[in-house]
């Protein structure tokens, strides 16, 4: 094995995380080591669903979220960008754990507000602009086969910008966003995943299938 971005590469050329790596990740997030280990099992399943290289490709994220690896999806691109912190076009385990940590029920509200802003700042200009907002509402309406007249759509977008844009520059800045979200906390509902609170207990199969567990079982069999 040799060092690659602080990760070891196993003989099958896939990045390999040992106990110390999992403990390091737990220390930097809201997860316990057991929970990071459960996430590692989940990650290995997701990252081998199409291309078994120890990294999650966009198609694999799409398969997990939408049950199909094909077709364009506006929301997929936004979610993938959120995970792909190093902009390498793939998601490694560090990025997976770090981003999911933001969705932890115990993550600070400020972090959730920041990440929600990133999600909506499509062009990465540091602002949520009117056209971006309209594009997202349109994508949501298309996804759910809902019809809304153009006039009504324009009116809702205009009203939202007017409500949020306190400095009256026609777009939503980070400061505008913080104030707006504090008045409309329901906007952040998708930024919390209750599953993450106790992932190791909710998904015990992850633990039973884990490498550590296999090691223990093997040892027990040897002892018998």
């Amino acid at each position: 094995c040799f060092n690659y971005q602080s990760r070891c590469i196993g003989k099958n050329q896939k990045p390999y995380y040992n106990y110390e790596d999992l403990a390091r990740l737990a220390q930097g997030t809201r997860f316990t080591v057991n929970e990071v280990e459960a996430l590692y099992v989940l990650f290995k399943r997701l990252s081998s669903s199409i291309i078994d290289d120890g990294l999650i490709h966009k198609e694999e994220l799409q398969l997990a979220l939408f049950q199909t690896p094909n077709g364009e999806n506006f929301f997929l691109d936004r979610v993938f960008d959120l995970f792909d912190e190093k902009s390498k076009g793939v998601i490694d385990f560090d990025e997976f754990v770090h981003t999911l940590s933001i969705f932890h029920p115990y993550a600070p509200l400020e972090e959730k507000i920041d990440y929600a802003f990133k999600l909506y700042d499509i062009r990465k200009t540091g602002f949520i602009e009117r056209e971006e907002l309209k594009q997202m509402v349109k994508a949501m309406l298309m996804e759910s086969d809902m019809n809304l007249s153009d006039d009504l759509l324009e009116a809702i977008v205009d009203k939202t910008i007017a409500d949020a844009d306190k400095d009256k520059d026609g777009k939503i800045s980070k400061e505008d966003w913080k104030v707006f979200v504090s008045r409309n906390p329901s906007i952040l509902k998708n930024m919390t995943l209750a599953y993450l609170k106790d992932i190791a207990c909710i998904f015990p199969s992850f633990i039973f299938k884990s490498d550590l567990d296999e090691l223990v079982k093997t040892k027990e069999l040897q002892d018998i």
Binding site: F66, L100, F103, Y120, I156, N190
Partner: peptide
Amino acid sequence: SNLNAFDIISYSSGFDLSGLFEETD
């Protein structure tokens, strides 16, 4: 109406990551 554009977007299943935790064959 008090409905804002972000409330509409938040109804999208596309921003819901719970699918990651569902067991698939």
